[in-house]
């Protein structure tokens, strides 16, 4: 009983991180549809929650394994400290109005753990993670530019009735939102539960006599549910704000942005795709948690560029690049403090 309670307390840091992720990042996938009043908030919450959980359970393992390899955290207090530090960094930097990503905060905190524990950090792994942070907005931008040009050409040629186009757009926003939510769960559950995978060994669980969940999947289910609760209880205002900003483009462009950023997160979390690309002799796509917000910014810029580059705010790119350095450093500093406190004040074994 005591061990179970301790596990629950330690996991709470991850769950809190999941809640915050759901409250803030669901806006990137359903904000446009809710902001345009094309999908009701309640419908968005249900769909987003369901697809986040599905993505987390079915496809969360890839990116989580990368974080596990980077830190190899096998003690619950350490996993708790790292998750708590990442969460604190996100809250702190958000309060200061700085662009922040949970994906980058958790990596900074893990590296701090390696230094704290006197373990070497796999620089190859770290390099591919950082490269993915840079690649994800670029990839999202390229995909959204391509999708936008394609969609515009299809609209021009199809001569579809405005009302039917509107109905199609609603369906498209649903599909893009579902894809985005699935990819968010698949890619970002690693931030929430990745550090706990080795620290919380759970026996496989058969659900309803049919579905078999391994230990990691049970954690991802928990993480997915935490994200879903965050979506349900904390995302409304962010969704409306982000939605309005996205809709300045147009509903069809907003749909493309959601689809392109969702596809980007999917690319960085699909083991099957990574292996398929490697099998045809190309590089292996690293499975890494990336920032959904930065993917959205990249996708918006992609559309801005194909529209002729008017009104683009390239300063945002500079802010993102600064965040690649500032977020992990801030999270690492906080992680040092938390790890010291947990070990020296609470006397936890690490």
């Amino acid at each position: 009983m005591g061990a179970a309670l301790a596990t629950a307390v330690y996991l709470s840091a991850g769950l809190l991180l999941g809640w915050s992720l759901g409250a803030n990042d669901a806006a990137n996938v359903y904000g446009a549809a809710v902001g345009a009043r094309m999908i009701r908030f309640r419908t968005a919450v249900l769909a987003c929650g369901a697809f986040v959980v599905l993505g987390a359970v079915l496809q969360g393992a890839g990116a989580a394994a990368t974080l596990d390899r980077l830190g190899g955290i096998d003690r619950l207090p350490a996993a708790f400290s790292v998750a708590l530090a990442a969460g604190a960094a996100v809250v702190w930097m958000s309060r200061l109005g700085l662009p922040v990503s949970t994906s980058q905060a958790i990596v900074g905190a893990i590296v701090a753990w390696n230094v704290f524990a006197g373990r070497p950090t796999d620089l190859g792994e770290l390099g591919s993670i950082v490269a993915s942070w840079v690649a994800s907005p670029v990839l999202a931008g390229a995909m959204s530019a391509g999708l936008y040009v394609l969609l515009k050409a299809v609209i021009r040629r199809s001569r579809v009735h405005l009302f039917r186009f509107d109905a199609g757009l609603r369906a498209g926003l649903h599909v893009a939102g579902a894809l985005g939510a699935y990819a968010l769960g698949a890619n970002n559950v690693a931030n929430v539960m990745g550090v706990f995978v080795s620290a919380v060994p759970l026996a496989p669980l058969r659900v309803g006599g049919v579905v078999l969940l391994d230990g990691a999947q049970q954690l991802f289910l928990l993480g997915g549910l935490a994200i879903a609760v965050g979506v349900a209880t904390g995302s409304r205002r962010v969704m409306e704000t982000v939605g309005r900003q996205l809709l300045r483009l147009s509903p069809e462009a907003a749909m493309v942005v959601v689809a392109a950023s969702g596809l980007t997160m999917f690319v960085f979390s699909s083991r099957a795709l990574s292996e398929a690309v490697a099998a045809i002799g190309l590089f292996r796509i690293p499975l890494v948690p990336v920032s959904s917000t930065q993917a959205v910014v990249g996708a918006v810029l992609g559309i801005g560029i194909v529209r002729g580059g008017r009104g683009l705010r390239f300063r945002v790119l500079g802010e993102i690049a600064a965040g690649w350095v500032a977020t992990p450093v801030a999270a690492a500093l906080i992680a040092f403090v938390v790890l010291h406190v947990v070990r020296n004040v609470f006397g936890a074994a690490m």
Partner: peptide, 14 residues
């Protein structure tokens, strides 16, 4: 259902 409603609206507009 969405597309059916759309067809009705198109019909009204016509």
């Amino acid at each position: 259902k969405l597309f059916q409603r759309t067809r009705e609206l198109e019909d009204q507009l016509d």
